[in-house]
Design a protein around this nucleic acid. Structure first.
Lengths: 139, 139
DNA sequence: GCCGTTGTCAACCAAACGGTTGAACAAGGG
DNA sequence: CCCTTGTTCAACCGTTTGGTTGACAACGGC
């Protein structure tokens, strides 16, 4: 079972059935049987999927008589969006910088449209991962 | 190999090593060997990871002599953020509606903090998946 | 022209995944 | 009190995944 939370969330949403269940749960809480109804898999399989979603923190279950209503825990999404936005922004920023550079020295034999940011030709950059945020990433 | 693009992207980012490589590539393009250097796995393993990222559309490789510079294709992130935001919004909206309802009829024996949206008690909702966007999603 | 560098392909392996069936557990309702 | 309903646990099975080693293709430098 993937140790770090971010991996768990991404991994949980990597399955179309599970994404589908999240979509259903965004409409409202549901029981396991209700969730299983649209699919031609057994209830046990759905239960397993829910466990994955629960481990990822995307879903919570409360007991209510013999039923176990499943509830979408939407705030976990933030984990992903934060991660994604960081690198999206960073990539855009880099592109902008490169663009500026190419514009500022237009005679230099340009190294091809997509290249390293010149001030960091290809050095170590041993810890590219964001210092804290990423889980155990960097292993 | 996961058929739908969204699954491929989520799945590609479900691995910490691959997320790490994306983080590295946000800084600037890199060759396979450069990417492999921080890890104690073989170059072949890194090559495999890159293939996964490439299949997900997160990365592109161009030939440059015997080197194969890897480039981050940041716009694929939009696929995920769009999906996530939809359900995040939907869940918030639902919560707001439920909240309003509870406030508007304060005497009714409340069914417990988290429950179905009353106007949709637990009907079929046979196709919870977003009609178009999902799996065939944007594709 | 060969050699070293860079990267991929192929075959293999252990572990994880998504699914199944069958049994068990939990809580009401007759 | 048993029986039905709802859900999970356990064992098993085929496929996928992340990793390995070994061979080989492509190219540039000397």
């Amino acid at each position: 079972m993937a140790a770090d939370p971010l991996s768990r969330v991404f991994s949980a949403l990597a399955d179309p059935t599970r994404r589908d269940m999240v979509a259903r749960l965004a409409v409202g809480d549901a029981t396991v049987n209700e969730l299983a109804e649209p699919y031609d898999v057994t209830v046990q399989a759905v239960s397993k999927h829910l466990r994955v979603l629960e481990d990822a923190g995307l879903v919570s279950r409360t007991r209510e008589a013999q039923r176990r209503p499943v509830h979408l825990e939407a705030k976990v999404f933030d984990l992903m969006t934060k991660w994604i936005e960081r690198y999206q922004r960073q990539a855009e920023e880099r592109y902008r910088r490169l663009d500026d550079l190419l514009r500022s020295m237009p005679d230099e034999r340009e190294p091809s449209p997509r290249a390293e940011p010149p001030e960091t030709p290809t050095p170590e950059t041993p810890a590219p991962e964001t210092p804290a945020p990423e889980t155990g990433a960097l292993r």
